[in-house]
Design a protein around this nucleic acid. Structure first.
Lengths: 195, 195
DNA sequence: CCAATAAGTGACCGATTGGTCAGTAATCAT
DNA sequence: ATGATTACTGACCAATCGGTCACTTATTGG
């Protein structure tokens, strides 16, 4: 890894939690200078402008989320265990896998009517997540883990929506009461559809 | 209504959609001057500072949301029709009742780790909404509209989480496919619990 | 109607914003 | 090892940020 590549990576990694907690508009280039301990000009060696940096940070952060989800679910063998692992990963949104919380929620709500590029990046991951759930459920049906009449894409959407809604509720309430209930509800439905 | 009160109200009403679409950090006092066609100093006659204005705008916007929900649900007579009305109100998040979309989602995600005051205001409305659902379900149970064993507070949380999650999904996808599915799922569960 | 009071104006403030660039230091291929 | 390239610095830029204030204009209670 070249010096340039390392510095660029450093900037992205240090900037990511800032953007994710304070938002894109709420984070200045100076904020990033502070945490990276670099000089102004150096930022602009690696990134054309703020918008450009934001794009790469969003890619990085969404990539990290995807990776965490993939490896966490991937450790499980059965379809049911994989779905449970996803739910458990989100059980305490006050101690989220990524500093500042779910980037889909954070970047998604900020970008939805201000930043088309970011909006599309978020949407791709949202759709990918649902597709992933659907695939797992369908595989579970195929190997007799789940009842054959379980509506895979319906539960996939439901699962994603409830978890994101639960994250919002937890973060504004600052306690994961709602999320614990939601996790229970989702797990119960999965159990009920075991073959 | 005094001149002062009218001007203050004008500022709040014009500022609300700005904050709700571009976010608090993304909206400048100058943006508000533009839409109100007032001079700089005039803003500060009615509001001590930006933070103060934000608080009042958030109150106003959350109040409007609550009012829309209350009157829409209030028009219905049965408990089931009231819950359906809430769902239908959110059927197309691209054409939301409030410009910029759900202020709980927008202000909630921006404020959760940057603005305690706003976070608490949002949380109060989130809890109020769930309480409202629970009350309606319990009333429905009491008058034999719903099965007596239906878990009211569980469905209340579920309903809220799924709708907010659905709003997020719709806004990043720019189509309400997910929300239509979610609405169907929620209505089905309500029907299943009819006595 | 007419003071007294309050609303509204816009030039101005220091600080901060995103961004540039000439010069310097470090890296890296030969 | 050295020369060419590239990373880095930090002073500097115009524009904009949130906010102030002396002043003018409008409102309002008696």
């Amino acid at each position: 890894m070249s010096k340039a590549a390392r510095t660029k990576q450093l900037i992205i990694e240090k900037a990511a939690p800032l953007f994710n907690t304070k938002g894109v508009a709420g984070t200045s280039m100076s904020d990033i200078l502070t945490v990276t301990k670099l000089a102004k000009g150096s930022l602009y060696v690696h990134f054309e402008n703020k918008e450009n940096l934001v794009h790469e940070v969003v890619d990085y952060q969404l990539g990290r989320l995807s990776e965490v989800v993939r490896t966490t679910m991937g450790r499980q063998k059965t379809a049911k265990a994989q779905l449970f692992a996803y739910i458990d990963l989100h059980l305490d949104p006050m101690q989220p896998p990524l500093l500042g919380g779910c980037p889909l929620l954070n970047f998604g709500t900020e970008a939805d009517d201000t930043n088309e590029v970011v909006r599309k990046k978020v949407n791709a991951v949202v759709e990918g997540a649902q597709q992933n759930f659907r695939r797992i459920i369908e595989a579970g049906i195929a190997n007799d883990e789940f009842k054959p009449d379980w509506n895979a894409s319906e539960f996939a959407t439901k699962l994603f929506a409830m978890v994101e809604g639960g994250i919002l509720m937890t973060r504004v309430a600052q306690n994961n009461q709602a999320m614990k209930l939601i996790a229970g509800v989702l797990k119960k439905e999965i159990e009920e559809n075991a073959a």
